[in-house]
């Protein structure tokens, strides 16, 4: 009991005015804006696929992009909430990526069914995963760095969701850049590796976001 009193006195003596962290909604908007600039810069450097405007008239392609944007927004929001010990008392919103991924999977299923006759598979394969990973490494590192300044009590989930957010930036970039219409290829080499990426994020989150 004496130890507790001593500790409290010491902590009270050490205290200084503290600026409360931003609201998680503001935080996620900040992250999305920065990520948006990063994506725009990547697009400027690589260029967009030459038939992008035409493809955006294809409902399944634009549906896929919209669902991917949904994943991007929901993961940003969820990662921001997961950075707070009490999830800012908005636990339900932290589950938003579940709905976003469900919609995304549905859209991909419909897009796959609509891909008839199937578009030819491109000659390359793992290069797409590699490109997405390379583009996502920087945002993943940055978001982990920012999240370390908070106090997550769900570090593995926070890490996983943060990595999915970073990966969705890479996935968006490649989908807007690569001249490819094969849904099979996109699912296999663009989106399925997302699961592995999320698992790596969970593993890293447990160590890196520990406080």
């Amino acid at each position: 009991m004496d130890n507790i009193n001593e500790l409290i006195d010491k902590l009270a003596q050490d205290t200084v005015p503290v600026r409360p962290a931003h609201h998680p909604f503001m935080l996620s908007i900040e992250w999305m804006v920065v990520a948006g600039f990063y994506l725009a810069a990547a697009m400027m450097l690589s260029g967009a696929r030459h038939d992008l405007l035409l493809k955006l008239h294809d409902p399944w392609f634009s549906g896929e992009i919209a669902a991917l944007v949904g994943v991007f927004i929901s993961t940003a929001l969820s990662a921001a909430l997961l950075s707070y010990p009490d999830l800012h008392q908005k636990r339900r919103i932290a589950f938003a990526p579940v709905a976003a991924f469900a919609i995304f999977v549905l859209v991909m299923l419909f897009a796959w069914r609509a891909d008839n006759p199937p578009a030819p598979l491109p000659v390359h394969s793992f290069e797409c995963t590699l490109s997405i990973t390379l583009l996502s490494v920087l945002p993943a590192g940055w978001i982990f760095f920012v999240m370390r300044q908070f106090a997550s009590t769900h570090s593995h989930w926070a890490g996983g969701i943060a990595f999915l957010f970073a990966f969705s930036i890479g996935a968006l970039w490649l989908r807007l850049y690569e001249q490819n219409d094969s849904i099979m290829h996109v699912v296999e080499w663009h989106y399925l590796p997302m699961i592995i990426f999320g698992l790596i994020g969970m593993w890293l989150g447990k160590t890196v976001l520990k406080w």
Binding site: I4, L7, I8, L11, D14, T15, V18, R19, P20, A21, H23, S83, Y84, P85, D86, L87, H88, Q89, F150, A151, T153, W211
Partner: peptide, 25 residues
Amino acid sequence: ILISIHKARHTYDGNRPCKPWVYAI
């Protein structure tokens, strides 16, 4: 726990109930 609360106090903004925040930590 008290040290953790001290470290994480910037994640509380004073605009939501304090108890759930304390118990979460």
